[in-house]
């Protein structure tokens, strides 16, 4: 195509194959998409900050009544280890270690992601039980939207992992699948990044 250099990510196979040429624009495009997604999160972060005051809480339950920092720490652990586990996928891909290994590592990621979701949902349920439903105040609306959207992303990521497993099993590790795996990797790490923001701004700041 143009005189641009090749896709700078990890090798998608032992040598620079055709997958690399495809990755060049597809993975770049996916990065662009995530930048746009990042703006969505950015605006939600800003909104959250703007509702984080007594007026926004409107006499409803506040952070100290609702947040369980231990559970949040646990979720953080699940999610970040899930991110690290994806390295297994990338390396298995690069060194062509076979389908079984790829699928195994993908499953590890999915399970850790699911662990995160389970604890997050548990928190949501407890909070709702204490009256912390999104209909209670502007602050809670923004809390549920921001954290819920991230959780929704994680669920999408898990679904994506599962469809990748099906693809690897049915069509094998062809170039298209390789490129999709590297996009999935970018996405999966992006979720960690957002979570770091949520962990600090949404949970730590108001508790501090």
């Amino acid at each position: 195509m143009s005189e641009n250099t090749l896709y700078p990510g990890l090798n998608l196979g032992e040598t620079h194959g055709e997958a690399h040429e495809q990755a060049e624009s597809i993975v770049f495009g996916f990065w662009v998409f995530l930048m746009s997604d990042l703006i969505i999160f950015g605006i939600l972060f800003a909104s959250y900050a703007s509702y984080l005051d007594p007026i926004g809480m409107a006499g409803g339950p506040g952070p100290k009544d609702l947040f369980d920092i231990k559970s949040v720490a646990l979720q953080t652990g699940f999610l970040l280890f899930g991110g690290i586990a994806y390295a297994g996928v990338s390396l298995a891909l690069k060194y062509e270690q076979g389908r079984a290994k790829l699928i195994a590592w993908l499953l590890v990621c999915a399970v850790l992601g699911a662990g995160f979701v389970v604890f997050e949902v548990k928190d949501f349920v407890t909070q709702a039980g204490k009256g912390g439903i999104p209909q209670a105040s502007g602050w809670l609306s923004s809390y549920w939207t921001l954290v819920g959207l991230h959780g929704f992303h994680v669920c999408c990521g898990i679904l994506w992992i599962l469809t990748m497993i099906v693809q690897i099993a049915t069509r094998g590790v062809d170039d298209t699948v390789k490129v999709r795996l590297s996009m999935l990797g970018v996405f999966w790490h992006f979720l960690d990044l957002i979570w770091v923001g949520i962990f600090s701004l949404v949970f730590l700041v108001p508790l501090a």
Partner: peptide, 9 residues
């Protein structure tokens, strides 16, 4: 939700 309502923050 109460993002832009008059009441409830």
């Amino acid at each position: 939700f109460h993002f832009f309502t008059n009441a409830s923050g």
